[in-house]
Design a protein around this nucleic acid. Structure first.
Lengths: 228, 228, 228, 228
DNA sequence: TATGAATGAGTATTCATTCAT
DNA sequence: CATGAATGAATACTCATTCAT
């Protein structure tokens, strides 16, 4: 309805539609979808309630478009520069995950994860599905591929479960980002850089080939802590 | 207010208060707090709306008590049998995490995580805080201690960041549990046992002392994947 | 349903019915009929809500009986000792009005006027009617008769409008009693004795035969202050 | 929020806000505050429930504003033309009281007295206070001043208690107005003009200097009817 | 386009009333 | 008799949605 602003010459006033989308994501993410009033979204975009209906079919549509517009691009450029790169898998993994991490640390984006997990997942399941595919699943699929490449090249152990490993880091970091925005760090403060670096250290260490003894509880001893 | 009468041996008639608390947690977790109508909660407990106000001050109070009653005990018995146990740290960790994992895989409990993360965190921040302390934070604190014990005993590498490592597994598994309940596995099915076991393998492997080369991007090369 | 306590030997525990009636009048008068919860009435009577329904058909019935029981007797003994009395009309009037005044100054009774005027008049018009007949109307009818007796005996002016005069004092004092209970006197404090005595002075003075000039605006000049 | 548009000369379309205020006062006064449903108020103003919340914070705010808007001006112009007037005190008093009387005989206004006395006094005590100051208290203060002026000019007896006398007439007339709206006159019909004129006659008579004997029970004999 | 008034369906909450114990 | 749990009708209030301007 409004032309997408491309290359704003300088102060380029954002289109009302974009203002609305941004405001919606911000407000919904901060206060929750059901708990947010359309009036607040409009106010945050410098408009009044009624104007929303010029651009969107309703509250749900606003949420849908806000999420799609913002999240579609999320993992879009993650894989980009990796192809040409001629670095070890662990470096590539670190690179990719750092991008995600930085992405999730951005206030709006990170808070949106909670929004999607907490409300969208129940209220708009299909949208949640789409978001998950484009987001976390795409994320750990990519990482899993990198791990497998590392395995193939002999950099990583041949018996790693690439997909599960990828799931673990990606979800672990994602959850930490969510908790970070909830200021859980006030309870147990932890620098975001330290968090990322240390986490990656342990994780990558877990993938690398070793010449030491296998961990207690590895395949065969797996049942150690399993009461079943 | 009244403890469950243990006269009925089999079908164990629960007190209405407990029925209400259970129903509340179930309904809220399944449909979301704001999106749930008190009437539905009451119906799920086999009562009518008004009865709720005999036991609770209102919707919020119901949520609060439902969460407290159910979650306080969550990590209560995690540390229990570990003291006496004379097993390697990795075994203990596996044991503890498996308990959490099984706990989170229970429908109501696991879904409650989403409820707390998604809505409670914003609507009742103090309650969220309390939950987080008793839950995830307590969880990774315990795991961190076990890791440190492993480091002390020479089982684990001396340069692991115990707390961060603990955070990573705990949040990783927690997030996977959440996604499991959201049936994300329909997209990418993954057996819960395989998930847990493989994840633990990688994780524990990352902690163990090795005789191989350090991972690329370890301290000193840490900036490898960092574009900034 | 419960035998009326007659001549309580000493501490004679009041019947629950009476306790309820008293409590009802008290609570209703203090907080308003609609605004009062039956639970509060019951509590004030040392019982629980349900017990009310053993004695009364419902809230309305409780109000009705509470008012009837208390107010029926209100003017009952006003006229009593006047018959035999051989005093001037003005003395009798003063006597009668003082009884009313003292009656209305009693907390519960005086506040009940407000209750009746404010809510009963609209919610239970017939009851209001009955109350008015037994109360104010009976009051001013009695006073009017006394005035007419005074006129007949030559004590009072022959051109007084006995009924209107009676209405004025009775309603004037009644309204002052109401305002007294509303603690309007905090604004403009006025001793209740002074109030009564001075009021009666002016009033009686207005009835007495005089030898002075008629008041400006008396019949014939009546329209003086009438802008219409 | 918007002043009445004076374009329509004849049917004078009132602003919705004023329509609401009028309707509120009318409905509340007629049926009682607690007993009135917001929906009825809205309907009386030609709107629906929700619209009320565009203008008012809630039921209580509506009541508050309705009373303030209507009653603030109540006694505003009472004192106005009295200054210049060169008439005897009794004439001025008659003039002032007639204005009040006519004011109270207007349906809405008169019924509002009952509303304020009956419910506002208990539910919004501060508002009651304000109303009382601007209304009855202001009224009898004014009358008291006029009486004192009459005393000073020798028109009235020097021993009248001006304030009490003023209180008596003002409250007496006010109460009669209240009862008038409650159609108590059906019981004991009395023409409003006769009521006012006769009442004023007696009252003023009570103030005037006389050459006759003092009333029985005047200062010194005051205790005549006083059993205490 | 954008606004702001108005709507009305939805929902938390209150409370008189019932009733099994 | 009395209680306390439970009911359900009533109602204040919210807010997404509509629409005339």
């Amino acid at each position: 309805m409004v032309e997408p602003t491309q290359d704003p010459p300088a102060q380029q006033r954002v289109s009302p539609l974009d203002a609305l989308l941004d405001a919606a994501l911000e407000v919904f993410a901060a206060r929750g979808y059901r708990a947010s009033r359309l009036e607040d979204v409009a106010a945050a975009a410098g408009m009044t309630k009624g104007a929303i209906y010029h651009y969107f079919a309703g509250k749900e549509d606003l949420l849908r478009q806000a999420l799609q517009g913002r999240h579609r691009a999320m993992f879009a450029d993650l894989a980009r520069p990796l192809e040409e790169e001629r670095a070890p898998a662990s470096t590539k993994i670190r690179l990719v995950l750092r991008r995600m991490w930085q992405h999730w640390l951005v206030r709006g984006t990170g808070e949106a994860i909670r929004l999607v997990l907490g409300e969208v997942s129940v209220e708009l399941p299909e949208l949640f599905r789409a978001w998950a595919e484009d987001g976390p699943v795409a994320g750990w699929t990519l990482v899993a591929q990198l791990i497998e490449a590392g395995v193939a090249s002999g950099e990583f152990r041949s018996d790693v479960d690439a997909e599960v490993a990828a799931r673990l880091v990606v979800s672990g970091l994602m959850m930490q980002a969510v908790l970070h925005h909830l200021q859980l760090d006030v309870l147990a403060p932890c620098d975001t850089d330290r968090l990322f670096d240390s986490a990656l250290d342990v994780f990558l260490h877990g993938l690398l080939v070793t010449h030491g003894p296998p961990p207690a509880g590895s395949p065969g001893a797996r049942v150690a802590g399993n009461p079943a």
